[in-house]
Simulated scan of single mutants.
Amino acid sequence: MGNAKSSAISKEILEDLKLNTKFTENELCQWYENFQKQCPTGRISPEEFETIYARFFPDSEAKTYAQHVFRSFDTNEDGTLDFKEYIIALHMTSSGKTTRKLEWAFSLFDVDKNGYITKTEVEVICQAIFNLIPKEDLPKLPADENTPEKRANKLWGFFEKSDNDRLAEGEFIKGVTENENAMRLIHYEPIKH
């Protein structure tokens, strides 16, 4: 029985992640093993995260978006992601319940972390999302969202706020859930060919 690996995932973290994500125990153990290989320190730096994220978007400039995603998941603000923060990030950006996803999206758009979103912050994130779109897909975008500015204006318009207003988390979630187009604009999904 003296075979317990020191690199094994702790039971508490495993149970917590099984409750809060769609991943199975097997998947989580596999993720953890890979995480340990790639990040022997047990932490992912912003640069390492950008590299991992870039693999998901090989035809895009994903760096800026990855930086915002990293910021939104570095919950203890120590400048790194531990395994748990990393798995939550993967789960939230790939699946997750709509409300939890929207809470995360709010934190993504809340660039200065003051609890509110401004139109300027929407523009910053829309620019980062736009960078994820492969160049050949840009002509396929609707005319009212084929630039980061147009996309930001369209999204901001759903909240019925003036350009100088601030948006609280509840208003953001309500505005996005009540409008299918808003949901589509807050993240990037590859265009189906």
Rank of each mutant, 00 (worst) to 15 (best):
Q36C: 14
G115H: 12
L138Y: 01
V111Q: 04
R184Q: 11
I129P: 01
K113P: 00
A182S: 05
Q67F: 03
K150Y: 04
Q38L: 14
S10W: 01
N146H: 06
D163I: 15
T118L: 11
F159R: 07
F57P: 01
E77G: 00
L141C: 04
Y53L: 14
H193G: 06
D110H: 04
L185G: 04
N3K: 13
N114G: 03
I133Y: 01
F172L: 09
G175H: 02
N3F: 10
F23H: 02
T24N: 05
D59I: 12
T98V: 15
D163G: 09
E180I: 09
L19R: 15
E121H: 04
I13N: 08
E61A: 14
E61M: 14
P40S: 11
D137S: 09
S107R: 12
K11L: 08
F106N: 06
S45L: 14
Y116M: 14
S6Y: 05
I129R: 01
H193A: 13
Q127F: 05
L17S: 05
S107T: 13
K11V: 01
F109Y: 15
T147R: 12
I173C: 05
S162R: 12
K140G: 00
E180A: 11
A89M: 14
K161I: 06
I191P: 00
D137Q: 13
P142V: 15
A89V: 13
D144L: 12
C39H: 08
P58V: 08
L28R: 07
P139G: 09
E180C: 03
F159S: 03
N181E: 15
N34I: 09
I125W: 01
E15D: 14
E48K: 09
E169C: 09
G2F: 10
N34L: 15
K154T: 14
I44Y: 02
F73A: 02
L132F: 02
F83V: 08
F172E: 02
K154L: 15
P58L: 11
A128E: 06
T177M: 15
K101W: 07
T80P: 00
R151S: 11
T118R: 14
N131W: 04
N146F: 02
L132R: 03
R43Q: 12
D112C: 05
E50R: 15
S107N: 11
K119M: 12
I44S: 03
R166D: 00
N34T: 07
F109A: 07
A62R: 06
